[in-house]
Structure formats: C-alpha cells, structure tokens
C-alpha cells in the first residue's frame, strides 16, 4: 500500500552504489569481506558501515563542545594596555549596540544559528530513523541537504579572527588575539561536518 515500501532500491536488486564514483556493482550480501569497486577501488557497501553510531557520536561531541565554545571567550582585544575578552555572543551584541546590524546578523547566523540548526536537525533525523517516523520524508531529505550545504559556513568567525589578528597588530596601541573558545568552536564545526559525512541518508528511506 505504501509506495515507499514497494519502491525498488539498489539494495533490493542486489546492487551496491559506489560512494565515490557512483558505479553500480552486483554484491552478494551473504559473501564475507568487503569487495572493492571495479572502477575506483573504494570499498563497496549497501550502506555506510556503522553510520548511525558514528553520526550519533559526532553529533553528541558537537553538542558537548558547543558549551565551552559559547561560554569561553573567543577573542581578546588589547587597546592601550587594557585587555578585553569577549564570547561569541558578546561580540554579536557589541555589533548590534554599535549599529552594525548587517554584520551582526551575518556572525549571528554563521556562529550561533547554523551550528544550532545543524545539531538539532541531525538529532531530529537520527531520532526519526530510530523510531521509524515515516512522515515528512521529502522534508527530512531536504533538511539533510541543507545541513550538508551550510556545514562549512560556520568557519566564518574563525577566519575573521585570524585576519583581524594579523591586521590589527599595532604594538602597544592595539592588538587582537584568538582566545580559549577558538579550538572548541573549530571542533564544533569539524564534528558537525564529519557527522554529515558519516550519515547515510538512505537509512531514512529504509525504515
């Protein structure tokens, strides 16, 4: 009755899709070992091995790292002997108070909204697989594509701080440095990107 269940997938037809070159190769699921793709040599699987466990682990890592990333200061500004450190959120509030709404909004989106969106979306998608929620399928597929696409944009703040560090470096007058939150923040970006890579979206449709 459900068009989902009756759809002929590559796995049902005994074909494995190569993740790297997208060649279809007949694969016997009963045969032990992992055969290699005849075209590119990548190991062939019907689904990415251990996908759910790895993705959960990376999403939880990102969630844990996002606490120090947001609580610790990400940047120190020295101005005539006075040093002032600020967290990501304080930096954004400073932009808004300063009247720079556009740039404040860009940093808010890249550093806070995008990482939150990625973590929440991945948890939602993973839960939907665990509990076999078979509704909103196309929307969940779209959600994952958005997560994949926006992943890299959270690096923005790190790039800006690195550039400021070099440009605003007038000895004794003013200088800017990255602070303790920077590696944690980079960790959040990396682990969410790896989570999107290890996740196999076909699991959504297997249900």
């Amino acid at each position: 009755m459900n068009s989902l269940a009756s759809a002929l997938t590559a796995r049902k037809a005994g074909l494995a899709l190569c993740h790297d070159c997208r060649k279809l190769t007949p694969l016997n699921p009963k045969e032990p070992g992992t055969p290699a793709c005849p075209l590119c040599g990548a190991s062939l699987h019907f689904r990415k091995p251990g996908s759910l466990n790895r993705t959960w682990a990376l999403v939880i890592t990102a969630l844990i790292l996002s606490f120090p990333a947001n609580i610790l200061p990400i940047m120190v500004v020295n101005f005539i002997g006075k040093s002032d450190s600020s967290t990501i959120m304080e930096g954004i509030i400073y932009f808004f108070q300063d009247g720079s709404y556009g740039i404040g909004l860009v940093i808010l989106t890249a550093s806070i909204l995008v990482p939150c969106f990625k973590i929440i979306s991945m948890i939602l998608i993973l839960l939907s697989i665990h509990y076999h929620w078979q509704t909103w399928m196309r929307h969940k597929a779209l959600l994952f594509r958005i997560v994949e696409f926006i992943g890299r944009w959270s690096m923005l703040d790190i790039f800006v701080i690195a550039l400021l560090q070099v440009l605003v470096n007038f000895t004794n007058i003013s200088s800017i440095y990255a602070d303790a939150a920077a590696p944690y923040f980079a960790g959040v970006v990396l682990s969410t990107m790896f989570a999107a890579i290890t996740f196999d979206p076909r699991l959504l449709w297997d249900a």
Partner: peptide, 29 residues
C-alpha cells in the same frame, strides 16, 4: 548483466546495468 525483478518498478522490468542508476540519497533505482 540484466536485472529481473518482480518486486516493483513497472510490471516486470528487465534492464541492463548501464540503463539504471541509483539515487545516492535514497537508493531508488
């Protein structure tokens, strides 16, 4: 290299491996 499947995909499809592709995001042939 022909797939003969009665599962779905039309009534009784028979196709060559070069004539199908699989969706990397949902595995549909």
């Amino acid at each position: 290299k022909t797939i003969g499947s009665k599962a779905a995909y039309g009534s009784e499809p028979t196709f060559n491996l070069d004539q199908v592709l699989a969706c990397p995001a949902c595995d549909l042939l």
